[in-house]
Design a protein around this nucleic acid. Structure first.
Length: 814
RNA sequence: GCUGGGGUGGCGGAACUGGCAUACGCGCACGUUUGAGGGGCGUGUCCUUAACCGGAUGCGGGUUCAAAUCCCGCCCUCAGCACCA
């Protein structure tokens, strides 16, 4: 047989799959459905190795389940709105739509060259009006349900370009185009009230048994529910109150100062009283230039006291100083805290630095608040009528008192913030709202959807959003009263587009409704969702939230969109992420011509466990290439009869290995998604087949094992397997052939080799019958010279036998 | 800084629920096939030792008959941190 020509074979089968539409799916109530989904890519124009990894994993799941006889939905689409298209428009004077379309068609070619088994008839792009019509429709439904509101919020602003910048365009406080120092500016913007679902998003974790524990933990911390109290502190000499949130009301007698965020309105409200107002203002300006991460990651906390303004501790009646410091963030709680330096390390550090008294109110066994804060439990001291109470009981007792006194109440606080979705940009889903002088904010009626993006737009990167310049877009009649009105020019965050796409795949061509409930209920929820760990919090929380909203509209009956989640690791080159700016990119385009898609897929799945980081290796891919060819060459070996005579023992062990391999590979794919070890088991079977002596009298055993190898490999290297399957005189496609089954009886062993440890060290191995009794094992050990030598002259203290596992003996010298 | 991961041979990695550390692959060495090279097929390969013994899963402790795995403290590294997607 000729050498394996991957280019020819891969092209051949890609054409056959496309022509026979073998991967297109319809609802079929007689078959069990399986919905396999990968996080849809942004059409940057180039498929990178991270994509290849993501989709190779998904394709194995899809192909495996198809062979298992399930009705598999495996779609692909494009998260096509977003910043890079607009940046390209500004830099290269190409329309974002054109740029995006070109990128999509290029990347689609690349996906096809990799042989992924997508149902391309269901392809979507979030920038298509047929898609974003329904994004707008959902937005209006949210507005109708009271989940959309407007509020002032901060943006990055370039004073020279006079435009709003994304965080990425304002790295290190510099504008990406003109390098000016960026500023912050407040704008009235659109928000979605995701916090209304905070509790349910948290509770829903109970039903997500198929999700990695770490993702649930990250989400839990992101939602950040904490039960505590809101307490009002009076401002001395005024009737003003400073409201704070705390989880430790039990330490209220130890509050010796207050800290407010630099954006807190109290600064402006008490401006006339602040003696050092100039300096305070300077500090506020300086922190406004920092990002939240910079603000919280500096090792040493900075701050400044508002001199002349004091608060009153409602528990003690004492006046205490107020500081502003940028480690207190405006978006969390009330943007103000009560500081208890004796029992919070950050407050302790701050108190030491600014010379504020530290008052101990909880005495623990080893507490020493002169050295560091004591954050543990203990008994209350210096706390008036609450002295000697255990701190664990103090929360409730003090809260009761606080409420009776009327200066606070119990409160629940979340770290999760409401979702700011406004973007002052062109390339996104237009927010379907109209401002009318008389009617106020009016939604665009359903019959007028979608609100289309205008074409007559220039991209300069300067000034307000390009949409404002389109007169035809901005000037409309009010849908309610018909008078002249203005259209909203903000577009939506692209996370909105990607929060519901998985549902649209179920009924992608529906023009009359967002989707048909029966189709949605047939396919949803997604059985296996696959994507990067970087989406653990934002995308995966937004998508869960959105789905719960669709459920509340009565369209779908499930609570959670994704039953099982797999978060794959990054692909790196010598330890660091591949990126254009570093110039360390390895593209699938340079690998496929040399080794073929099958080898690339095999390598990327074999080189590391799917959820861990994978470092690209050019030697490693060479090894997979060899393996692919080794399987190819087996065809001739298996089909050539030799004159040697079969040995029954060899035949038995090969057959046993085949059944064991089917079991292990099936389990690794189906239950553990441990694809690297699945591949290694197939390699072992192939190695055994090479070592096996071929003979005329093996009654087709080697052929049978070879066929099994091909079936087991089909999800990984589908082109190679289709070709070999055809060469073995099969007329059907291996892609839809039944997955091999194993016989448990063929796997059973009658003997097992177990280790013998003496004082915790391995001293020998013995072979015992399966499930042997202790007496039997002792007898076997007594006949083992090597082990007996170690026991000679020793006193046996303990003999421990764990069935089929290990013998461990503890001895001491006589 | 906060939150969540990870650290095992020369390298990528394997190891069920605490039970034989290093499966499989790469690299390397040797043998074999070949006119030669490449390629193929096969054998060996944690360290130390002639061998026995002994030692090794980031570092330091602990629990246990037994620890890569559990507990405590530390170091290094990766990801996310709300306008990149």
């Amino acid at each position: 047989m000729a050498d394996y020509n991957h280019s020819k074979v891969e092209k051949k089968w890609q054409e056959i799959w496309s022509k026979t539409k073998v991967f297109e799916t319809k609802e079929d109530l007689n078959k069990e459905k399986y919905y396999c989904l990968e996080m849809l890519p942004y059409p940057s124009g180039h498929l990178h190795m991270g994509h290849v990894r993501n989709y190779s994993i998904g394709d194995v799941c899809a192909r495996f389940n198809r062979m298992k006889g399930k009705n598999v939905l495996y779609p692909m689409g494009w998260d096509a709105f977003g910043l890079p298209a607009e940046n390209a428009a500004i830099k290269n004077e190409i329309h974002p739509a054109k740029w995006t379309k070109q990128n999509i068609s290029r990347m689609k070619e690349q996906l096809k060259a990799l042989g992924f088994s997508y149902d391309w008839s269901r392809e979507i792009a979030t920038c298509d009006p047929e898609y974003y019509k329904w994004t707008q429709w959902l937005f209006i439904k949210m507005w109708e349900k009271g989940l959309v509101f407007r509020k002032s919020a901060n943006v990055n602003w370039c004073p020279s370009c006079k435009t709003v910048l994304a965080n990425e365009q304002a790295l290190n406080g510099m504008c990406w185009r003109c390098n000016s120092q960026t500023e912050h500016k407040d704008l009235e913007q659109w928000f979605i009230k995701i916090t209304a679902y905070a509790d349910e998003l948290l509770e829903g974790h109970k039903h997500l048994e198929g999700w990695p524990e770490q993702v649930l933990l990250m989400q839990k911390n992101w939602i950040g529910k904490s039960c505590g109290a809101e307490i009002d502190f009076s401002i001395a000499g005024t009737d003003k109150k400073l409201k704070i949130f705390t989880t430790r009301p039990d330490t209220i007698f130890g509050v010796t100062f207050m800290v407010i965020a630099p954006e807190h309105e109290l600064i402006n409200e008490t401006k006339s009283q602040i003696v050092n107002y100039d300096k305070v203002l300077e500090y506020v300006l300086a922190s406004s230039r920092k990002s939240n991460i910079e603000r919280s990651s500096s090792k040493e906390k900075t701050g400044i006291r508002l001199e002349g303004v004091n608060a009153i501790n409602p528990a003690t009646g004492k006046e205490i100083p107020i500081f502003t410091a940028d480690y207190v963030l405006t978006g969390y709680g009330t943007g103000a805290i009560m500081a208890v330096p004796a029992h919070d390390q950050r407050d302790w550090d701050f108190a030491k630095k600014y010379n504020v008294p530290i008052i101990e109110v909880i005495k623990g066994d080893n507490s020493d608040v002169n050295n560091c804060a004591y954050e543990g439990e203990g008994n209350l001291v210096s706390s008036g009528q609450f002295n000697d109470i255990k701190s664990t009981e103090a929360f409730d007792r003090i809260m009761q008192w606080v409420q009776e006194q009327g200066f606070g109440k119990q409160a629940v606080n979340y770290k999760l913030k409401d979702w700011l979705i406004s973007r002052q940009r062109y390339w996104g889903t237009p927010i379907p709202m109209v401002y009318c002088k008389d009617c106020g904010i009016v939604t665009v009626p359903e019959k007028d959807l979608p609100v289309l993006l205008p074409e007559d737009v220039k991209f300069t990167g300067e000034g307000e959003t390009p949409l404002k310049a389109s007169k035809a877009f901005v000037h409309v009649k009010c849908p309610k009263c018909g008078k002249d009105a203005q259209r909203e020019t903000d577009t939506m965050d692209t996370f909105v587009d990607s929060s519901w796409y998985y549902a649209r795949y179920c009924d992608v061509h529906n023009n009359d409704a967002i989707f048909d409930s029966s189709k949605l209920n047939y396919w949803m929820p997604v059985n296996q969702y696959i994507g990067g760990i970087e989406h653990a919090c934002m995308h995966l929380i937004y998508a869960r939230f959105w789905y719960k909203f669709v459920r509340d509209l009565g369209i779908v009956k499930y609570d959670e969109p994704f039953t099982n989640l797999l978060t794959q690791g990054m692909v790196t080159l010598s330890g660091s992420a591949m990126s254009k700016s570093k110039g360390n990119i390895i593209s699938p385009d340079e690998i496929i011509p040399k080794y073929g898609a099958d080898t690339l897929r095999l390598f990327i799945l074999f080189a590391a466990p799917v959820e861990k980081q994978l470092d690209w290796s050019s030697d490693g891919i060479e090894g997979c290439w060899r393996f692919v060819n080794r399987v190819w060459r087996l065809f001739d070996i298996v089909n050539t009869k030799s004159v040697e005579v079969a040995c029954q023992k060899d035949k038995d062990s090969l057959l046993k290995l085949m059944h064991q391999t089917i079991k292990k590979v099936t389990c690794d794919i189906e239950e553990k998604l441990q694809l690297n070890t699945a591949i290694s088991f197939i390699m072992e079977l192939v190695n055994a087949l090479y070592v096996y002596k071929y003979h005329s009298n093996d009654e087709g055993l080697s052929l049978k094992v070879y066929e099994t190898v091909i079936l087991l490999m089909a999800p990984f290297t589908p082109h190679l397997c289709e070709e070999l399957w055809q060469k073995l005189w099969h007329s059907n496609s291996v892609s839809i052939h039944a997955w091999p089954i194993f016989d448990e009886n063929m796997i059973k062993e009658s003997y097992v080799e177990i280790p013998v440890q003496i004082n915790g060290k391995l001293k020998g191995k013995i072979t015992v019958p399966i499930d042997a009794q202790e007496v039997e094992v002792k007898n076997i050990i007594n006949t083992d010279n090597k082990i007996m030598l170690h026991l000679e002259g020793k006193q046996m203290l303990k003999f421990l036998y764990i069935k089929n596992e290990i013998v461990t003996i503890v001895v001491k010298n006589l």
